[in-house]
Write a protein that binds this DNA or RNA. Sequence first.
DNA 1: TGTACATCAGTGAACGCGCGTTCACTGATGTAC
DNA 2: TGTACATCAGTGAACGCGCGTTCACTGATGTAC
Lengths: 191, 191
Amino acid sequence: MRYEVDHKAKTRKRIIRKAARQFREQGLEGAGVATVMKSAGLTVGGFYKHFRSKDDLRIEAIAESLQELRDTFLSEVHKAPPGEGWKAIVRQYLSLEHCENVATGCPMVALAPEIARSSPAVKARLASLMKQHAEQVLPFMPGRNRAEQARNQIVLMSAVTGAVGLARMETDQRRKLQILNTVRDRLLESF
Amino acid sequence: MRYEVDHKAKTRKRIIRKAARQFREQGLEGAGVATVMKSAGLTVGGFYKHFRSKDDLRIEAIAESLQELRDTFLSEVHKAPPGEGWKAIVRQYLSLEHCENVATGCPMVALAPEIARSSPAVKARLASLMKQHAEQVLPFMPGRNRAEQARNQIVLMSAVTGAVGLARMETDQRRKLQILNTVRDRLLESF
DNA sequence: TGTACATCAGTGAACGCGCGTTCACTGATGTAC
DNA sequence: TGTACATCAGTGAACGCGCGTTCACTGATGTAC
């Protein structure tokens, strides 16, 4: 081999990470294969040495985005007092910082409608990734038992994704903050 | 004139209504000018006799979608006992029927990320349309005064748009219903 | 009353462009003999 | 030890295709004289 043993794996990871950012920022259609490759320091042609298709990359990139989201969540959770992990997650999710940085934020808010429209094969794969994600975050949700935690998770996820989705459509900064803060305050006092 | 006096206005409206459905179903990029025109019984070339650009159509189509949404809301509200209008809206919004019919549903859930990514000019115009929409629905929101109604509206809108957004990504029908019903039940008992 | 011209919603071919994908090639390295 | 060949990550031009937009044209009607 001309390169280090894991050279190809590293390159692949670099492409996925760049794609994860660009898909969130520009959409699953908006971000192009050529641009992703260029931002990874490569040329278009090499793409198919790493992925079978753009759909393949979409799946890998969203998996990566969910992983990054989970990493952020868990690091926030560890800073919070025991049993209050969900509060840290809610605060982080509804922060202006998360709202304004689509490229590094939650892929579900950034891509929900496009994921819903995906081909059945892609959609099924992504649904399974999101289910996994939810299960890993479940332990930090409020509630006296698993069933209650699961219900609360659904309510919390709906409220926070909805709030960020709405806030991002806003052009008036005051309204944007009002959405984020109103939902945050309500959620923090409701569980 | 060869046609009735309002012929052109009627044609324009027909194009907008078709576009409103197709944008919600296929996205602001996904739906094409040629397809919209064809579904309105016309050919591509005529498009620019009615609109300055595709962006122009996007704005008109979303305005139309919001109007349709409001019509649905108001017809539900009139069937509900006084003061419980918001409950009727929540039930309608979180129904399986609304969730599964993207083409005739709420444009904010169907298009949020694409609207957020729009050019500043388009985004500003749409933000103003959505503000108008919210103001017209405000009177039916729960709360003892306008300020409380406004806060509750933000929470309700976030929760219902988030829930439908998440439910539409689900491939498992059981999970989809679980999301819609859990959020509906929680909201109905929370105000 | 008749004729020439203006109007204008709608047609359909053509345009330039960006996209995902394919493919023959490169060139540095490892391996067989 | 030296040489010929295989491997394979990456290159860059080319492909077919669909898109938004433009444009010369059509043809039915209204209007001017």
